[in-house]
């Protein structure tokens, strides 16, 4: 699989200056990779807003502050609405060449923050919203969210005798946001940094509500060794359980269309949250995946 991109990102040309640093995220945190790289593209004229989540709790505990750009913390459900107000103020003040960025996890986006995000998208407020998806409520200690995949163990979706983890499919945020007919919406993965950063760069150049949903593996919550964050990100895409796509100018497209998928076991087997799974479960997930991809291919240009 080759990465497809429009704006070529060359790592050599990126700034060595870190705009997020010294934060207390767990070792190997995928969300941190996403935020760090996003800030590299968006730059110093970024006004960042985070709700109460991993990214807030690990960065801002007075007197230590780990963001080197303007940043605020808001209430859990209020990322979309707070950045809407920030963007309105920036416009009222005539601030130019600035980016208003909201960064929230899957819980703060797909669950408690969905209403405010929907409002910002519907009004087409001039904001970028980045959802780092670690597929559960990690800040409170691995509870199920509506973005937790089928079969995953969490502390609120136990697995064992008579229980199989989450027994429903995850919410498709990409579809939800695209349905708002925003100017730009994309999925991404921290394992594909060029693709991710190109999408951030593309979003930066567009006006209006822009949404990027990036999968961010979490060693603590998923249960794998800290060095394997990128590997699991790759395996998710390779096995077809995560896809890289864009919605732009009213059209959806896949950025990567694997000819063959890696076996789902290659992604699932090494993670503690899927440890309880048996052969039947793998096949079920495979079936779900194939159904999803048939739908995707049908409606997207690839």
């Amino acid at each position: 699989m080759a990465e497809v991109g429009i704006m070529a990102i060359d790592f050599k040309n990126l700034s060595d200056r870190e705009l997020m640093y010294g934060q207390k995220t767990c070792p190997g945190c995928g969300a941190t990779v996403a935020i760090r790289l996003a800030l590299k593209i968006l730059g110093e004229r970024t006004f960042l807003c985070i709700p109460a989540c991993c990214a807030a709790a690990t960065t801002n505990a007075y007197p230590q502050t780990s963001f080197f750009v303007n940043n605020v913390v808001t209430a859990f459900p209020a990322t979309g609405s707070t950045i809407a107000g920030m963007a309105a103020a920036a416009e009222a003040q005539g601030l130019e060449d600035v980016t208003i960025l909201g960064v929230a996890g899957d819980g703060g986006t797909a669950d408690i923050g969905l209403q405010a995000l929907s409002g910002a998208c519907e009004r087409n407020d001039n904001v970028i919203y980045l959802c780092y998806d670690n597929e559960a409520y990690m800040n409170t200690g691995i509870q199920r969210s509506s973005s937790t995949p089928w079969g995953a163990w969490t502390t609120t979706s136990p697995a064992g005798e008579g229980a199989r983890g989450v027994v429903k499919s995850r919410k498709n945020l990409f579809d939800i946001i695209a349905a708002h007919r925003v100017p730009y919406c994309a999925t991404a993965s921290v394992a594909y940094p060029r693709d991710f950063m190109e999408k951030i760069a593309k979003a930066k150049a567009i006006k209006g509500a822009r949404f990027i949903h990036v999968q961010a593996p979490c060693p603590t919550g998923w249960g794998y060794p800290t060095e394997k964050t990128i590997e699991y990100g790759r395996l998710a895409v390779g096995s077809g359980l995560w896809y890289l796509a864009e919605y732009e100018n009213g059209e959806m497209k896949l950025n990567m269309t694997p000819k063959t998928f890696k076996p789902v076991e290659s992604y699932l087997r090494g993670q503690r949250r899927f440890q309880h799974m048996k052969e039947d479960d793998y096949r079920l997930i495979e079936k779900q995946r194939d159904r999803e991809w048939a739908l995707l291919r049908e409606r997207m240009k690839s």
Binding site: F47, C49, V72, T74, A75, P77, A78, G80, S81, T82, I83, A84, G85, M86, A87, A88, A89, A90, A92, Q93, L95, Q115, A116, G119
Partner: peptide, 15 residues
């Protein structure tokens, strides 16, 4: 909820 969050966002920017 969003009304108050939005005016807070504006106040954060100094408006």
């Amino acid at each position: 909820h969003s009304a108050m969050a939005a005016v807070m966002g504006a106040a954060m920017m100094g408006s």
